[in-house]
Design a binder for these strands. Structure first.
Lengths: 212, 212
DNA sequence: TAAAGAAGACCGACCGGTCGTATTTATTTC
DNA sequence: GAAATAAATACGACCGGTCGGTCTTCTTTA
């Protein structure tokens, strides 16, 4: 952000803290996140955290923003490398399931965990999560409309409904994979979207580049 | 359970406590459930709860069982009044969305909230939730297979996959309805399953009795 | 009168948050 | 260039509050 070396180092520290916070919160929730445990896992003191964020809520909001950045890097960016249209929709869903299957977060999905944790608790955290969720939904709908505009999907497709169905397959995967058999869950999540797209767009190969 | 009047009255007390626990836990989670708040909401003392359950975990497990009973009464029982096959599948899904839309629980869905809360926390609560989830999944699959056996669905339908897609529409409704527009969410949840069933079974009317 | 049940004070542990202190780092002065 | 000083930073003890859980006491009922 600035040319100052000290602040840059501080930014790196902040990012490391927030990465750990995303990981812990994905398992225990943003409210269940203990600042003492977070500090211990990083080998720093709890009071030091308050030099970077004035309160736990401020750290929670920063953690959400960090999770958004991770999501953009791990799921959205790979999908945007696929060509517009149905193949990009599928690439986005596949990247999402890949991310879950890679088990980088102990809770499976940071957003699913925290959104269920806060969906009945008014406050700044809930409002921010609602914003993020609305933006994600709008992004998915935009991808579907692009496929319609390209003629890959029938023009009478309900873009919002199809986006809902695709997202639902991902949400369900986040929940089931930790309680039931993960392999079966991920296969269903992938096949559900694949079958839906194939039914609407039978003449287009949906295989990403380089895969069988 | 017994003929004893005192114990029967105790059973009623237990049920009232557990109903309140289901309601509170649907919003704040089973771990976020405060025994003090639970006792206050019922006008009883916190220590009195320990006369009925030896620990918080025991009360949490009993709360899960109570939520299962509520689910059976509110969702499964109405669906079983519909004729076997595709119409019963749809009746089950509609009863589920109706239950969410009725807003009887502040958290929307007890199981969604608690399963995301505990899916990364080993222990008795998580194991019980996994059992309940597995039983629900098996029940859904059984309904789909019945529809296949009746010839209402093509014989090459993947019952587990279709059950996954139907459940996913419900899970997503539980999450989105509290953060995004509930009306739109419930409409998508209903249309998603309805469209899926209509595509597989075009010659069967899916309207429940008495509805337009 | 005896027995059973609820109530509320109480305990140790953990929470988010604050503050005085000590260590370190960087700058200045001899 | 070395020593001394000043400023920034991180630490850990500590605070009030809430948690799950226990225990003694009091009320009530048979």
């Amino acid at each position: 952000m600035t040319v100052d070396g000290r602040l840059a180092r501080g930014e790196r520290t902040r990012t490391a803290v927030l990465d750990a916070a995303v990981s812990l919160a994905s398992a225990n929730g943003l409210d269940g996140l203990s600042l003492g445990h977070l500090a211990d896992s990083l080998g720093v003191s709890k009071s030091g955290l308050f030099a970077h964020w004035r309160s736990k809520e401020a750290l929670q909001l920063a953690t959400i923003d960090r999770a958004v950045t991770q999501w953009q890097e791990r799921i959205i960016a790979p999908a945007l490398r696929a060509p517009r249209g149905v193949r990009r929709i599928r690439a986005l869903h596949e990247a999402r399931i890949d991310f879950y299957a890679a088990q980088v977060l102990p809770g499976g999905c940071f957003f699913a965990t925290t959104e269920f944790e806060f969906n009945a608790r008014p406050g700044a955290v809930r409002d921010r999560l609602a914003e993020v969720f609305a933006a994600w939904t709008a992004f998915l709908e935009r991808l579907v409309r692009e496929a319609v505009d390209l003629g890959e999907l029938p023009s009478d497709v309900d873009a919002a409904l199809l986006a809902y169905e695709i997202d639902a397959c991902g949400i369900a995967a986040a929940m089931r994979s930790r309680l039931l058999d993960p392999e079966t869950t991920y296969r269903h999540a992938r096949l559900g979207v694949l079958g839906r797209l194939r039914a609407l767009c039978p003449d287009l190969t949906l295989l990403p580049e380089g895969q069988s």
